[in-house]
C-alpha cells in the first residue's frame, strides 16, 4: 500500500469542494468565536458492534466541539497506518468517517497519511482536529456549574465501554450490545435553542460519568450528588458489569453527554433531549450543591438512602474476581 494510493482513497471518499482543491491548507470562512480541538484515536478492536475507529475518530472530535456549545464545521484527519494493514479495511474505515460527517453535517477539509513499518503502529491510528463556531452569547464550560443546577444525562450509560470490553481478547463474552458512538452536535444545537440556562456540557468518554462529574466538581468548586436509582442503563450493560465486577459509571461512552442546567430550565431541556434521536433515554440523575467539606466531591445516593463517595477512577478498567 503506497502513500499515494491511500491519499487517493481518502480524497475520493471524503470529497467536498474544500478538500477537492487539494491546497496545502484549507481556507475557511468562519464567523465569530471559534472552538478548536484535537483528539487521537486508538481502539482495539478497530471494528466493533456499532462503529469502528473511523466513526469514533469523527464523533470524538465533533462531540468535543459540541461540548463547548460550538456548531461543528470542519475536521482534519491524520492517519498513521501500519504497513500491511488491509486496504479493504481502510476503505471501510474511511466510508464510516464519511457517513459520520454527513450525519453531523461537517466536512473533512484536510488530511494526511503516513505508513509506518510493521510493529511501529497497531493497525491504524487516527488523529482528528476540528473547528466549530460558537453562537453569540453561548458560554459553556466545565467551570460553570452552580449550586442548584440539575444534572441530566442524554441516555443509557456504559454501552461503548461494555461493548469494547466484551470483544477484548481473553474475555469471550457474547452480548447483543452496540457502542453508542454518535455525533452530538445537532442535539446540542437543539438544547441551546431551547434554553439559555445550560451551564456545562461534557461527553463522558474515558473514565465514564464518574470521571466527568469529578472533573466538573473540581473545575466549578461544587459538590455533585447523583441518585444511583435514576441512572439509565441497558440490562446487558448492568449484567456485564455484575459479571466483571465493574461499575458502569466508570465505563466509557461515545455518544452521550452530561448537561448541568439551571433548575428552571431543566424540564424544557429534558423534553428537548428526549425528542432527539440522540437523547431519547435522557434522564435527570442528580443536582449540584455547595461544597460541604474540605474539597469538592461527587456523592452517589444508594438504595439504603446513604451516600457513598464516587471517586475519580484511576487507571484502566479491568475485570476483577474479588
Amino acid at each position: 500500500m503506497t502513500q499515494e494510493l491511500v491519499a487517493q482513497l481518502f480524497g475520493k471518499a471524503l470529497s467536498n469542494p474544500i478538500l477537492d482543491r487539494m491546497d496545502d491548507a484549507a481556507s475557511l470562512d468562519i464567523e465569530g468565536r471559534i472552538a478548536f480541538t484535537v483528539d487521537s484515536h486508538v481502539v482495539s478492536p478497530i471494528f466493533f458492534p456499532g462503529g469502528d475507529i473511523g466513526r469514533l475518530s469523527m464523533t470524538g472530535t465533533i462531540n468535543d466541539l459540541a461540548m463547548v456549545g460550538a456548531r461543528p464545521l470542519y475536521i482534519t484527519a491524520g492517519f498513521i497506518i501500519e504497513e500491511g494493514f488491509l486496504l479493504e479495511e481502510l476503505v471501510r474505515i474511511v466510508a464510516s468517517m464519511r457517513d459520520a460527517a454527513d450525519e453531523a453535517g461537517v466536512q473533512v477539509v484536510a488530511g494526511d497519511t503516513k505508513v509506518v513499518e510493521r510493529g511501529a503502529a497497531d493497525g491504524v491510528f487516527i488523529t482528528t482536529s476540528g473547528v466549530g463556531s460558537i453562537p453569540d452569547g453561548v458560554r459553556i464550560s466545565g467551570s460553570n456549574a452552580r449550586p442548584g443546577d440539575i444534572i441530566i444525562v442524554s441516555g443509557t450509560i456504559g454501552d461503548h465501554g461494555a461493548t469494547i470490553l466484551s470483544k477484548r481478547e481473553g474475555m469471550d463474552f457474547e452480548v447483543e450490545l452496540q457502542s453508542d458512538c454518535a455525533p452530538l452536535g445537532r442535539l446540542v444545537e437543539e438544547m441551546l435553542a431551547a434554553s439559555s440556562g445550560i451551564h456545562v456540557l461534557r461527553d463522558p468518554t474515558r473514565g465514564g460519568v464518574a470521571a466527568t462529574l469529578n472533573e466538573i466538581a473540581v473545575s466549578s468548586g461544587v459538590d455533585v450528588e447523583i441518585e444511583e436509582e435514576k441512572i439509565p442503563y441497558r440490562g446487558e450493560v448492568r449484567a456485564a458489569c455484575e459479571l466483571l465486577g465493574l461499575d458502569p459509571l466508570v465505563l466509557a461512552n461515545e455518544g452521550k453527554l452530561v448537561a448541568f442546567v439551571a433548575e428552571n430550565d431543566a424540564a424544557i431541556v429534558l423534553e428537548t433531549m428526549r425528542a432527539s434521536r440522540y437523547g431519547a433515554d435522557a434522564a435527570v440523575i442528580g443536582r449540584v450543591a455547595e461544597v460541604e467539606s474540605s474539597r469538592p466531591r461527587v456523592y452517589a445516593r444508594t438504595l439504603l438512602g446513604s451516600r457513598r463517595i464516587l471517586s475519580m477512577p484511576t487507571g484502566e478498567q479491568l475485570p476483577r474476581i474479588c
Partner: peptide
C-alpha cells in the same frame, strides 16, 4: 446466561 450476556 446472565441478563443477556452469555459465555462458556
Amino acid at each position: 446466561d446472565v441478563g443477556g450476556v452469555t459465555r462458556q
